[in-house]
Simulated scan of single mutants.
Amino acid sequence: MPFAYPNPQALRAELLERVAAGETMMSVCAAPHMPSYFTVRLWARADPAVAEQLRVARLQGAWRRRYMFDEARAEAVLVRVRAGEKLHHVLAAPDMPSRRVFAYWRATQSHVAEELHRLHGDRRADRSRRNHARFRRFDPALADRILVRVGRGGGLEPALVADPQFPCRAVITRWRAENADFDREMKVALAVGRRRARCTPELIEAVALRIRQGASLAGLGLRRDMPCRATLYAWMRTRPEFADAIEQACRDRELELAERMVEIAMDCTPDTAGRAARRIAAVKRRLGRLSRLPGQTWRDRGVLE
C-alpha cells in the first residue's frame, strides 16, 4: 500500500524513536504532523518489517515508562523516609513506585543512592545512641536492693516490677553473666524467696479457680500477681493443702468438660450430627491434654488416678 505522506520514512523513524523513548503510540499520532493511529496500523499490516519495528519500539517504550526515573516521585519517597518511615512501608503505597522500580532508580541514580545511604546511616547512629542510653552498667547499690526484694518472695519478675528504678530482666541477665558474685547471690535470694513465699488460703483459692478455668501452673507462674513457676511446682511437692486443692480443681475441670460432651450429645439432631461429633472430638482432645495433673509425670499418672 503506497504511503500518503511526502516523506514517510522520516515520519516512521520519528514515530519509532518517540515510541521507544516511552511515549505511547496514541500520543505520538495525536501530533498534527504525524500520521494517525489508523494509518500507522495500516502501515504495519502492509509491511511486516514495520510491524516488527513497532513491536520492538513499543516493548522498549513500555520498559522505559515503567523504569524511567521520575524526580518528583523519588523525592516523595525520600521525604517520607526522612520523616522516619521505613522504605519498604513507603514503597508499599499504591501511589509510590514498586520496590523493583525504585531499586533500579537507586542503582542508576547516584544522588538517590547517596541520600538513602545518608538517611540509613543517620537512623543507625540514632538507634545506637538510644541503645547506649538504655545501657545500664552494674550498680552494686541497686543490685543489693534487688536482692533484698527478691529474697522477700514472689520471684524475680514481680520484684523488678515493684520499683520503677529497677532494670528489666534482660539487664539482670547480663549483670549475672558479667558478675559471678551477683549471680551467686541472686541464686541464694531466689531460693530464700521461694521458701518465704506464703501459701495463703486466698492464694490457693485463686490458683484453683484459674485451674478450673483452663489455666496451668506454668502459665500462672508467668503472671505478675502469682508466684513463679518453680514456687508453684515446689508447693505441689511440699504443701499437701495446695496439692489437694489443685488436684480437686483439675478433677472439677475434667467433670465440667465431660458434662459439656453430654450436653452436646443430648442437643444433637440428625441434621447437626456431624457438627456435634466434631465438637465432642475437640472436647475429648482437650480433656486428654488436661488429664495429667500439674507436677505429675506420665509414670505417676496411673497411681494418682
Rank of each mutant, 00 (worst) to 15 (best):
P2A: 12
F3R: 05
F3N: 03
A4R: 12
Y5M: 00
P6D: 05
P8Q: 05
L11D: 03
L11S: 01
A13Y: 13
E23Q: 13
M26D: 10
M26I: 08
S27I: 05
P32T: 06
P35S: 06
T39R: 10
L42M: 13
P48I: 07
A49M: 06
A49G: 04
A51I: 11
A51H: 15
V56K: 13
L59W: 05
Q60S: 14
G61M: 11
W63E: 12
Y67E: 03
A76P: 01
V79M: 04
V79E: 14
V81G: 01
V81I: 13
E85D: 15
K86L: 15
V90W: 11
L91G: 04
A93F: 01
P97A: 09
S98T: 15
R100F: 04
V101H: 03
V101D: 05
A103M: 02
Y104D: 01
Y104C: 00
W105M: 03
R106L: 12
A107P: 02
E114H: 05
L116A: 07
L119S: 07
L119P: 03
H120I: 00
G121C: 03
A125W: 08
R129I: 03
N131K: 10
H132A: 15
A133N: 12
P140G: 04
A143E: 08
R145F: 04
V150R: 00
P158M: 14
P158R: 12
V161P: 00
P164V: 09
F166L: 02
C168V: 07
C168I: 04
A170D: 15
V171L: 00
R174N: 03
W175I: 04
A177R: 09
N179V: 08
A180K: 09
D181G: 05
F182R: 06
R184K: 07
E185F: 00
M186W: 08
A189K: 01
A197M: 12
A208S: 12
R210I: 02
I211C: 00
L217K: 09
L217H: 09
L222H: 14
D225A: 10
P227Y: 15
W235M: 03
T238Y: 07
R239F: 00
F242L: 12
I246Q: 05
E247I: 00
A249Y: 09
R251H: 06
D252R: 01
M261Q: 15
E263K: 09
I264R: 03
A265Q: 10
C268Q: 06
D271M: 13
D271S: 13
A277V: 10
R278G: 01
A282S: 12
R285G: 07
R289V: 11
D300A: 07
D300Y: 01
R301Q: 15
V303A: 13
